[in-house]
Design a protein around this nucleic acid. Structure first.
Lengths: 335, 335
DNA sequence: CTGAAAGCGCTTACAG
DNA sequence: CTGAAAGCGCTTACAG
């Protein structure tokens, strides 16, 4: 592989000149510029990134970290779509993505992860923190590496979607359809940063419509389809008058739909059921789910952009994205 | 950040000694070993990876590349599960994963990608090549970087699942249920390396059962749910006697199910429909799909393991994984 | 069993 | 506008 020196020799200049021309330093004559570029071309020179990293302190690598909280994390559509957005933006900016999924479940810190953070390999990190069980951010902050969080975790720079607006939108939609008797399939508040705010949004919409939010029957699942069925079974058995079921994610909504049907309720004829997240299955299932999109790809793009701004020395404000209400077939006017 | 030199001073030895002790070179007394480790501990020393990479030529980074062939690639369950498997294995071995999704659609090569490959940053690459439209492998092979392919693309080292066995298993399952009149919802052969072999497997099972494979009605979709509906509509209209529909992926199978039902056919009562891939929706949809699992996580793990063997100087044989038949509710005995 | 020293391939003040 | 030279923090023959 040709080195800087080879290029310098061939172009008849110093290595300093080649280096500077390649990094677009001004003050060079077009003539030398041309000589250099030509030599680069002829030799097929590509800079050695390790050498560049060592001398400049910049690696052009950013790490995308998300704690390994459960085995299916690599098929979580929100996380993967976020990753896709980050990737798109990084490619544009010439940054490479290093993937790291620290195991933070146990008390002992993941030493591999710690080493990586300390290794000087990373110009910055983007942490996806959907789940508050584990923070991958602490070592990063200790080391003083520029970081942005996608989510709620405390960090100078962050982007997330507005869970409160999400809760509000889904509720307003159902209210507009004439519903007044609601059931809630939630999730324990400590499972996820956002759910608390979704509740606040739902409550706000309810109260604005003059409904007594606190009187709504509710149960908590664990995100799974199965728990959605179970919750729906319990809730509908005790409160058969409910005409709309708000679920805090799509999988529980799908479970609820199956359960409701098996109890003889038509969805959405007798009962509207809504989800949250807009996972791929939400279009495929029957009836297709009315749900909320968190706009994960945009969160990813923006997160990357924020990091680049931080790397440039600016201090961007946190971004809160307005979620999208996706109306499909699982919601309908009150029977 | 403390450097090797700091550690050496503190331990009262040379940097060479520290370096060698840290890399587990034999021949050192326990005493010096101890001194070194203690100094490392006290200083919280972590090696600078860029420096290490520059002097040793080893970065401990491997790239996982999959061509950016369509926008939803980051939510393709096969690819993401493969990635999860690779990640798990790399973490175990202390390797870091760099993600790269070269844009190979256009004729001009993706220069970012080319640069990355040439940059000396990569100890090896794992290419996921589900789609033959674009090869990310050429620059890698030109540069002589150790590579393994997950899929069919030509490469010294590779792992994939056995598409022929997959086709055969699904067909044998349906034959065992008593079906004799089949319809095929395929995909153009140049869309995917594997489909050709799935057909061969289906044919083999058919002929073994004395059925005339060539007489089966067939149409081609484009993997999408929508195309599944369209194909099912055409096929069932012309061949209402068909009792089993074999689809070459799950999304088309789901489309086919919807279409069949809207034409008044009960699934699986009147008509069995099978998929391929076992995507997450396959359990969630109604009826849950009988399908084939490619065992993507294992493909990923094995791919990584193969790469490590190559990095160790051995020449592992290609691996072909036996796929799994997953029987669920979309298939039933012939009516 | 341990160390001195060269070298990996860049970048970056500093000079001129 | 360009170059000489130091230095980034390691590893690795080579010597002893």
């Amino acid at each position: 592989m040709p080195t800087l020196e080879d290029v310098a020799k061939r172009a008849g200049v110093s290595t300093a000149t080649v280096s500077k021309v390649l990094s677009n330093t001004p003050y060079f004559t077009d003539a030398t510029r041309l000589k250099v570029m030509q030599a680069v071309q002829e030799l097929g020179y590509v800079p050695n990134l390790a050498a560049r990293a060592l001398s400049s302190g910049k690696t052009h690598i950013i790490a995308v970290v998300f704690p390994y909280v459960y085995e299916a994390i690599f098929t979580d559509p929100n996380i993967m779509n976020t990753l896709a957005g980050i990737e798109a933006e990084c490619t544009t900016q010439g940054y490479n993505i290093l993937l790291s999924t620290p195991q933070l479940a146990s008390d002992e810190p993941d030493t591999h992860y710690q080493q990586l953070i300390q290794s000087g390999y990373l110009d910055g990190v983007i942490a996806i923190d959907s789940y508050p069980t584990a923070s991958a951010l602490k070592p990063v902050q200790e080391k003083g590496i520029p970081a942005v969080v996608i989510g709620y975790e405390a960090c100078d720079y962050s982007v997330r979607h507005d869970d409160q607006a999400g809760g509000q939108k889904i509720m307003e939609h159902l209210i507009a359809l004439g519903h007044t008797r609601f059931g809630l399939i939630e999730v324990p508040e400590d499972t996820n940063y956002g759910v608390k705010y979704r509740s606040i949004g739902v409550r706000a919409a309810a109260e604005q419509a003059g409904l007594d939010y606190d009187s709504f029957p509710r149960t908590s699942g664990d995100w799974s389809t199965h728990s959605g069925s179970r919750c729906a079974a319990a809730l509908l058995a005790q409160h058969p008058d409910v005409t709309a079921l708000i679920c805090y994610n799509d999988r529980m909504a799908m479970g609820a739909i199956q359960q409701a049907r098996s109890m003889g309720r038509a969805v959405p004829g007798d009962l509207s059921i809504t989800g949250y997240d807009d996972i791929p299955s939400a279009v495929l299932c029957d009836p297709a789910l009315t749900t909320i999109s968190q706009r994960s790809p945009e969160q990813g793009r923006i997160g990357a952009r924020l990091l680049f701004e931080v790397l440039d020395g600016t201090h961007p404000d946190p971004v809160v994205l307005d979620p999208l209400l996706i109306v499909r077939q699982s919601s309908a006017p009150r029977p």
